[in-house]
Simulated scan of single mutants.
Amino acid sequence: MRIYSPRWGLKDLYHFKKTEGGWTFENYRCKGEVDKGGNPLFYKSLITESISYPDHLEVYISNAWENVNTLNKEQVQNIFDELSEWISASENNLH
């Protein structure tokens, strides 16, 4: 995911890789295991960067996790691209 950071004025990269119980999450600041919805590291990273995010984002990330095995890599990437656009749009609308 590429998400706009108002702190730096550019888009930062956030990686999710499916694991048995959730995701391995990584960005330039941290790396670790998160649950199906991205908790806690993904949201801590967004907050640290002063990035606001839409309500219920966790539900959408959990749904992506549930569907990863039935989709191809491009379809999964499209889901995360749409989520990152949603987060960036949400963030840009606040400023």
Rank of each mutant, 00 (worst) to 15 (best):
N67F: 09
L57M: 08
K36G: 02
D55R: 05
N78F: 09
G38F: 06
Y60P: 00
Q77D: 12
K73W: 10
A64C: 13
Y60G: 00
W65P: 01
L46D: 00
L41H: 08
E58L: 11
K73Y: 10
D35E: 06
D35C: 08
N72Y: 11
E66C: 07
L41E: 05
N63Q: 13
Y53F: 14
G38W: 04
V59T: 12
F80A: 01
N67S: 13
K44D: 08
P54F: 05
I61Q: 04
L71G: 01
I79A: 01
N63K: 14
H56A: 14
V34T: 11
D35S: 11
W65C: 00
V76F: 12
N72Q: 07
N69R: 08
I47C: 02
E82I: 15
L46R: 02
E49H: 10
G38I: 10
V68C: 12
N63A: 15
N67C: 13
Q75I: 04
A64G: 03
I61T: 05
E66T: 11
T70W: 06
G38P: 04
E58V: 11
K73D: 13
P40Q: 09
V68P: 02
E58W: 13
H56N: 15
F42E: 02
Y53P: 03
E82L: 14
I47H: 04
K44P: 00
E49F: 09
K44E: 13
H56Y: 13
N63P: 03
E66M: 12
L57H: 04
V34A: 09
T70D: 09
N72T: 09
S45L: 05
K36Q: 14
N69V: 15
K36E: 11
N78P: 01
S62Y: 10
W65A: 01
K44T: 06
E74G: 04
V76E: 10
L46V: 04
H56I: 05
I61A: 05
E66D: 13
D35G: 07
G37L: 08
I79V: 15
G37Q: 06
D55P: 03
D81W: 03
E58F: 11
K73G: 09
I47N: 04
E82D: 12
L41I: 10
E66Q: 12
V68S: 02
A64E: 01
T48N: 07
V59P: 00
T48R: 07
V59K: 10
E49Y: 10
Q77I: 15
